[in-house]
């Protein structure tokens, strides 16, 4: 596989009620807060000002918060590809829909029972008309993300890629997104992606 001189331009972590932009912690709340309260507090702190946020499920809210942090200091071209992955798919919301199935189900819950909806929500908010894919993996797979991002970039299907991991299982979440482009200091490699992912997961 080629090494096209791509860089990990920027990255964001959300875990244990802490949001990191690169190495800097930009926000945190008490760990005792429920997931919904943490998401609401983050939304307020980051001044996201996007009422549709409140209609989204947990996975999408996490994606919107993460991309808000990641995109803040960059011009994000509309062809920026989104390459996300997780192990639980949309299971959290699936269970919610499942519970309602005895009676009348909610269309606004059902629509979120697909993991790729988070790609749609980010695309709508940031006006990205680009390549999207959602991979389901047992665990964070740096090699897959690195190689697929490179394939898209080399084939000139995109000029930048946001790739990473966004998992929500039993109210526990783990979010790690990177912006990949020709700018920045950290070379794009399987090792570097892994290192950055693990950094705050220790």
């Amino acid at each position: 596989m080629s090494n096209g001189n791509y860089k990990i331009t920027d990255y964001v972590h959300i875990k244990d009620h802490r949001i990191f932009h690169g190495k800097d912690q930009v926000f945190k709340t008490e760990k005792s807060l429920g997931l919904d309260q943490f998401l609401k507090a983050s939304y307020k702190k980051l001044e996201i000002a996007y009422p549709k946020f409140h209609k989204m499920d947990g996975l999408c809210k996490l994606g919107i918060i993460a991309s808000e942090v990641l995109f803040k200091e960059h011009f994000i071209s509309p062809d920026t590809a989104l390459v996300f992955s997780n192990s639980a798919s949309s299971l959290e919301t699936d269970k919610k829909h499942q519970q309602a199935m005895g009676g009348m189900v909610s269309p606004s819950v059902f629509v979120y029972t697909l993991p790729n909806i988070v790609l749609g929500e980010i695309s709508i908010k940031h006006k990205l008309q680009s390549e999207n894919v959602f991979f389901i993996e047992n665990q964070f797979n740096a090699e897959l993300l690195k190689e697929y991002a490179e394939v898209l970039l080399e084939a000139k299907k995109t000029s930048a890629v946001v790739c990473g991991w966004i998992d929500l299982k039993n109210a526990k979440y783990d979010v790690f997104l990177c912006l990949i482009s020709k700018e920045g200091e950290i070379p794009l490699s399987k090792e570097n992606l892994k290192k950055l992912y693990i950094f705050e997961n220790e």
Binding site: P78, L82, V111, I117, L119, G120, E121, S123, I124, K127, L128, Q129, S130, E131, N132, V133, K157
Partner: peptide, 11 residues
């Protein structure tokens, strides 16, 4: 082959 998102509405 190509895949492009509408960026319009989720459903």
């Amino acid at each position: 082959e190509a895949s492009v998102n509408d960026a319009n509405h989720i459903s």
